[in-house]
């Protein structure tokens, strides 16, 4: 099953490599991994999307919790949560395709953020499956570049991951 793990980790050099190294050494999957500063200078927030059986996910969370640099860990997928990912997409948009691409972007509530005579650059946010659905509508022959940020997530309601 697909899981979104949110972590608060010590803002130390090497914390990222410990976590990435754990996944590679033990053969766990990483679908995406994002890391960025938080409002607390001493902490970074990391979001890892992974998949595996219940037993594997249990091991992943236990092994992550064992790392000294991991301060808090929350499996967002255990409760109600919001998932967002940013997609930047550059496509060839010429002739009649230009209007068709524009319409698809509107349907998916994306934005065209850069235009030239031959191309559009599109910005779209949403859960991973929405981005996948959008990408499927664009003919692969016209795609020049796909940039995905990886998933960020947050729990709904009062549940919050903090110290």
């Amino acid at each position: 099953m697909r899981r979104i793990l949110s972590l608060l980790v010590e803002n130390e050099p090497g914390a990222l490599s410990r976590i990435a190294g754990l996944f590679s050494a033990r053969g766990y999957n990483i679908e995406s991994l994002t890391v960025a500063p938080t409002d607390d200078d001493s902490l970074s927030r990391m979001t890892i999307v992974t998949h595996g059986s219940e037993q594997i996910i249990e091991q992943i969370t236990k092994q992550l919790n064992k790392l000294i640099d991991v301060v808090r860990l929350l499996d967002l997928t255990e409760g109600r949560h919001i998932e967002r990912e940013l997609l930047l997409l550059k496509v060839v948009a010429q002739g009649t395709d230009r209007e068709e691409v524009k319409r698809l972007v509107d349907i998916f509530r994306g934005r065209i953020i850069d235009v030239d005579g031959e191309t559009y650059t599109i910005e779209l946010t949403g859960p991973g499956d929405k981005l996948n659905a959008f990408l499927e509508t664009i003919p692969s022959s016209s795609v020049l570049e796909v940039v995905r940020s990886g998933v960020s997530g947050i729990a709904r309601g009062e549940r919050a991951l903090r110290l």
């Binding site: 037993q55 249990e58 091991q59 236990k62 919790n65 064992k66």
Partner: peptide, 8 residues
């Protein structure tokens, strides 16, 4: 003592 050993 190590939770990760349990159920591994």
């Amino acid at each position: 003592i190590d939770p990760a050993s349990i159920g591994k």
